[in-house]
């Protein structure tokens, strides 16, 4: 039973599939990490993903250009992020509830735009799989790591960049300061609002790419509510990773690999109730965090709007 899974081709398949599945989570969760590090919880990631998925798809369908798809998705993310930042930072709205509003807005608007532009589900030519020269020929590793589409590579490339920006640049320092102690940051002359606008918009643009990575790279279709709750999982993964890009990546990979594993388990005909297999990624993510049991405090100002002179 288990030995059926210990075949190298199976393990390669699971690992490669886990990497593909992790991609949208990674974009969305890294983006959300920036927002949360600066003190803004954006629960609306799911809605922004859907907008990104639709606009990217729409652009590729009409222009045939993948670059246009990415740019339009980024633009959609920028607009959604601007709106989100305006609501959460300028209007200081309760972040839990405004996030639900933004989610519903993206859910509804992406579907509405889709229905107005297309009559039914259609398809585009999205990002092809790239077999990285030389590297993709390495046995095992090549098959796992170097036969994906471009957006997968960018997602993983983003992780060290995000780490660097957060931990090794002045910008990162500002972001963390604003998330930890906005009053002090403000006193030091950092514009809390500007930093938060930046992180929220950046997060939204990455969320939009997360959506586009489904609609124009992994799946090449758009469908109403196609993200199916991934945006909420992405927010959860930020907590899994304790607001650190590499931790977030570990969470995304764990969740997705278990998900790939359970699909393979059933593909191999191993007799586990499908429902329990489907539960596995969710349960194991919690369990992993229990076992890791580390004490990392969340950014002190998370969900708290900044009021000068409080």
């Amino acid at each position: 039973m288990i030995d059926q899974l210990l075949d190298s081709s199976v393990l390669i398949g699971i690992a490669a599939s886990g990497i593909r599945l992790a991609t949208p989570y990674l974009y969305a969760a890294i983006g959300e990490t920036f927002g949360q590090r600066s003190g803004v919880l954006n629960l609306g990631v799911e809605g922004i993903m859907l907008m990104g998925a639709f606009s990217g798809f729409w652009a590729v369908y009409h222009t045939g250009s993948l670059l246009a798809g990415v740019l339009i998705a980024l633009l959609a993310g920028l607009l959604m992020g601007l709106g989100t930042a305006f609501i959460n930072v300028t209007l200081k709205a309760e972040q839990g509830i405004s996030g639900i509003g933004i989610y519903l807005f993206g859910l509804g608007l992406s579907d509405l735009l889709f229905q107005q532009s297309f009559d039914s589900v259609v398809t585009v030519n999205g990002f092809p799989r790239i077999h990285v020269p030389v590297l993709s020929r390495i046995p095992v590793l090549g098959e796992i790591f170097f036969q994906h589409n471009l957006l997968v590579y960018i997602a993983f490339g983003l992780v060290p960049v995000a780490w660097f920006v957060l931990n090794r640049t002045t910008l990162g320092l500002k972001i963390r300061a604003v998330g930890q102690n906005p009053q002090a940051a403000d006193a030091m002359g950092i514009s809390v609002a500007r930093v938060r606008y930046f992180t929220v918009i950046l997060g939204a643009m990455l969320a939009a790419i997360a959506g586009a990575s489904l609609s124009i790279a992994l799946l090449n279709v758009f469908q109403q509510n196609m993200t199916a709750g991934q945006g909420f999982i992405a927010v959860a993964l930020v907590y899994f990773g304790s607001w650190r890009p590499f931790g977030v990546m570990a969470g995304a990979l764990l969740f997705s690999t278990v998900n790939a594993l359970q699909l393979w388990v059933r593909t191999k005909g191993i007799d586990i109730p499908a429902e329990y297999a489907s539960m596995a990624p969710y349960l194991l993510t919690i369990l992993a965090l229990v076992l890791a049991s580390q004490r990392v405090d969340q950014p002190a100002a998370l969900t708290k709007p900044f009021e000068r002179g409080e």
Binding site: G47, I87, A93, I97, S98, I100, G101, I102, Y103, L104, F105, L107, G108, L109, D111, L112, Q115, Q224
Partner: peptide
């Protein structure tokens, strides 16, 4: 389309 209702509700919330 029902999606319009979703948008409407989201606008009210926001």
């Amino acid at each position: 389309p029902s999606a319009l209702i979703t948008v409407l509700i989201s606008l009210v919330i926001v």
